[in-house]
């Protein structure tokens, strides 16, 4: 049994150390997928097979869990991510207009990435920042009180680069 992944990619090694920390327990599958996504950015088939082999779980179980939860993505993300919160508070304060403007500007729909792999547009159910609605998360930083104009301004900074 080869300890290292055939590609020699070090990240597989790190992931395996993480699995060892959880004693390869089956109930740690979600934690391990979190780590895998943190390391690789998304969960491709090869990676899921690796997890299934190491945890001695059927691939169907690993694939089933990875596709069940919204947090896991099986497609690569763009260089930048723009997450528009679509919780109720943000919605009644005009998040639908914000996302509409961004969709039109980037010519992609929510959940898609621009053709040049620059920006991924995502929606969130509620990030719990209802007091500062509508909120948008640009590359991981929560930004309060957005409008279609301020969102486009932010995104244009990425596009211009």
């Amino acid at each position: 049994m080869a300890l290292e992944h055939a590609s020699g990619d070090k990240r597989f090694k790190i992931l395996e150390v993480h699995m060892k920390k959880h004693q390869f327990r089956h109930d740690a599958l979600i934690e391990i997928l979190h780590k895998a996504q943190e390391l690789f950015g998304y969960l491709e088939d090869d990676l899921l097979l690796f997890v299934s082999y190491k945890l001695k779980l059927p691939p169907s179980r690993v694939y089933g869990v990875a596709t069940f939860y919204h947090f896991f993505t099986l497609k690569p993300k763009g260089e930048h991510t723009c997450v528009v919160c679509m919780g109720t508070a943000c919605y009644v304060k005009g998040a639908d207009k914000v996302i509409g403007a961004v969709q039109e500007h980037l010519k992609i729909k929510a959940g898609e990435t621009t053709a040049d792999n620059n920006v991924s547009l995502l929606t969130a159910r509620c990030i719990g920042a209802c007091g500062i609605a509508p909120a948008v998360v640009y590359d991981g930083s929560v930004t309060p009180r957005q409008s279609p104009e301020s969102a486009l301004e932010h995104i244009n900074k990425w596009v211009a680069k």
């Binding site: 508070a89 159910r125 509620c126 719990g128 920042a129 209802c130 007091g131």
Partner: peptide, 8 residues
């Protein structure tokens, strides 16, 4: 697991 949108 506070999933209810609008609750924090």
């Amino acid at each position: 697991d506070e999933g209810d949108p609008g609750a924090f």
